[in-house]
Simulated scan of single mutants.
Amino acid sequence: MQPAKYTHLIKQVAAELGFSFCGISKAEFLKEEAPQLEAWLKRGYQGKMSYLENHFDKRLDPTLLVQGAKSVVSLIYNYFPEKDLAVEGNLKVAKYAYGEDYHFVVKDKLKIFLERLQAEAGEINGRAFVDSAPVMERAWAKRSGLGWIGKNSLLLNKQMGSFFFLAELIIDLKLEYDDPVKDYCGTCTACMDACPTDAIAQPYVVDGSRCISYFTIELKEEIPADVKGKFENWVFGCDICQDVCPWNSFSKPHRESRFEAHTDLEKMSTQDWKEITDEVFQKLFRHSAVKRTKLEGLKRNIRFITGE
C-alpha cells in the first residue's frame, strides 16, 4: 500500500502548493528520445546553445542525476496572465517574463514539496528541477500523462494549453505511475504557419537556432541580417506559436502574485523602449527572467527591430 499512499500524498501536496497538474512516471532511460536528441544535435538545431550538447547521458537517464531514482514527478505551474501586454505596433515581451523569474518562484515551492515529503515518508533521496539541469522535462511530462508534445515541440495540455512552466522531482520512492495521453494536434498546422522565421522545421521538430526566443535571449552576438523584419516586434522571447494554438483558448489566468507584471510595463511605448535606462530596466525587471539578456542585450534587440 505504500506506493499508493505516497502517490496520493504527492498529488495532494502538489494541489495545495498551487500546481495545476501532477503526473508520475517511472525513472528509467529515455530509449525513444535518445536517437531523436542525437539527430537534433547533429543538425545543429541547438545553434550557439552548446550547453545542450553537454551531459547527453544525464539528459536521458534520471538515475544518473539521483542515485537510486525510482520516480519522476512532473508538475505544471500556470503563468497565463490576466492581461496580454503584447499590443500590436508596440514592442513585446513573452508572457512568461512579465513577473518574477519562474526559477525562483517554482523552486521555492519545490523546496517545500520535498520537505513535506520527507516529513511524511522519512528519508527520501531526491532533487528538484526547474529548467536548470539536464532534464528532458517535456518528455517526462508526456510520459506522466500531463499532455502531448505539440507540433511546436511544447507540451500541450487539453485543459489549459501551453502557457505554463514544467518542473520535476526525481526521487528514490516507488510510486504508482500515470499513463500517457494521445496526441490531439490532428491536422492543425497553425503554429507552423504562423512562425515568421520558419523555426518549426517539420512537425514536432523545432530548429532552435531559428527561433525568435533564441535570437532575443540565448544568442549573445549580433543577430543575423537574414531574419531582420521577421520578429513582429518581440524584444524578449516570443509567444507567436502559442498564441495561435487552438488549445490555448482554454488558458485561464494564474493566481500567482509573484508573476504579476510591474504596473509600468504596460505603459511602455516604443519610444520608452528605445530610451530605456539602467534605472528603468532595474525597476521593471529587477526579479524578472528578462535580466538574462542584461540591459545591453535588450538594447541590441530593440535596435534590431526598430532599426535605430
Rank of each mutant, 00 (worst) to 15 (best):
V206M: 11
K252V: 13
R258Q: 14
D278H: 12
C211S: 07
A289F: 04
I223E: 03
P246Y: 06
M268C: 12
D207Y: 07
E232D: 13
M268A: 04
A194D: 10
D207N: 12
D183P: 04
C191I: 05
W273Y: 08
D226C: 13
A261S: 07
K252P: 05
Q202W: 06
G229M: 03
F250M: 11
C245M: 07
F259E: 07
T197V: 10
K283P: 01
M192H: 12
V235E: 02
F215H: 07
W247S: 02
F250N: 13
F259G: 08
V227N: 00
R210L: 15
Y184A: 11
G237H: 03
K267Q: 14
S288T: 03
C238D: 12
D207H: 02
E256Q: 13
G229K: 04
R210D: 00
I200E: 00
C245S: 03
G237E: 05
S213I: 05
T277Q: 01
V205S: 11
P253Y: 09
F231G: 06
E256R: 03
G237I: 11
A194N: 01
F215G: 05
Q282W: 10
A194I: 08
E279M: 12
F236T: 06
R210P: 02
H254R: 01
E279K: 12
A199N: 06
R286H: 15
L295D: 12
E218M: 09
E221P: 10
T277K: 02
A261Q: 00
E275H: 14
Q202R: 13
H262C: 10
F250S: 14
C185M: 11
C211G: 01
V235R: 01
A201M: 12
S269T: 14
A194G: 02
D278K: 14
A190C: 12
K294V: 05
D207P: 05
R210C: 03
